[in-house]
Design a protein around this nucleic acid. Sequence first.
DNA 1: ACCTGAACACCGTTCAAGT
DNA 2: ACCTGAACACCGTTCAAGT
Lengths: 223, 223
Amino acid sequence: MATRTRRPERRADALSRERIVEAAVEMLDAAGESGLTFRALAARLRTGPGAIYWHVANKDELLVAATDAVLTRAIAAEPSDGTPEDAVRALALGVFDAIDAHPWAGTQLARLPSQPTMLRIFERIGQQVRALGVPAAARFASASALLNYILGVAGQNAANARSVEPGTDRGEVLAAVADLWADLDPAEYPFAHEVATQLRDHDDREQFLAGIDLILAGIEALW
Amino acid sequence: MATRTRRPERRADALSRERIVEAAVEMLDAAGESGLTFRALAARLRTGPGAIYWHVANKDELLVAATDAVLTRAIAAEPSDGTPEDAVRALALGVFDAIDAHPWAGTQLARLPSQPTMLRIFERIGQQVRALGVPAAARFASASALLNYILGVAGQNAANARSVEPGTDRGEVLAAVADLWADLDPAEYPFAHEVATQLRDHDDREQFLAGIDLILAGIEALW
DNA sequence: ACCTGAACACCGTTCAAGT
DNA sequence: ACCTGAACACCGTTCAAGT
């Protein structure tokens, strides 16, 4: 029989991987990627930079853990009891809203594969694809298309967020882009010129869902 | 009348924005993002780090320019005279192959919006969407879905390339992932467990095209 | 076992000085 | 106008020393 080993008493403010990751998420939210340094993180946790290395191997691992933390929360909700289409939409919106709230996480998705979390998202999508009645041989491609679209939007939202001052009104940005596109030479940019007016009352979230619906329609059309 | 001003004679190896960007692309290809430093770049160009700042404002601008360079080449080919579907596939494959050859560029797409180049790609997609007969009000959403999917795959390919040693055989990686997925608990990961076997003879490029076809089918089904 | 903080090896960027 | 390279202000990471 193994004797019960008792952990040594710890100060309430003792360091832990969870506390470090939590503080990292808060710093990333507040100041973006450039705001997260081991020195600043250590200062916030009232310790030295070296202490952090006892709990995380390096900065990349910390960024993966921070991205995991926000994504895990985003997909924590149980699938509702609606149609499989609704479940896909709900899952996709969960990821969308998480990146909207934490743009730095969208950037990380194209840099550092957080394999277990990505697998969990893929699994959830795949289960709904199966529920849609897609034959086995076509499920992988269908789920991949959905996941890649979701990640593509995540990346673009992150890029958009980076390209403006934090707190900039999205409507102003869209209006400025709409003006720019309207002024393009219609001979060279017929499409952009034409859709410029649509940009003004464009809703990112609505547009995102329209893309999901387009892929769902494709899945249903092909299988 | 303005008098003809003659540029001063320049040494054949004089610095220029183009030579700097070209060298940066080569260094990124050879050694990845961490291999591109102003010191190493300056050494390669036989000058000091400060000289580069006369031609580019900072490192971000250099990365945008390098990404632009490879993407511009990727979409340089004129649209062929096939169907609009074929033109979309050709354009998408151009971006796919460019990121496959320069994975660092895929990472940049989620970090730094290279607006003129992105606009050019969006325009090209939009023109084909119009040629497909999609009504004006639905063109923006259709083109966005295609672009976001393409960028999502680009980002994931970049992430995959980063996560392995350069030169690693993709087949080995897929086999390893397939083993891992096959071992997952079927109760918790029914989908991943089921598709594990398909991973073994998975072709990234083919899969990418299948996703494009899915979105095209959705566009045709909905409009 | 876990923390401390100085020190190391780097970076991007600036800038006075040159040509 | 363009280049040089030392110097500045930072960064991730390590590690001997502590508790």
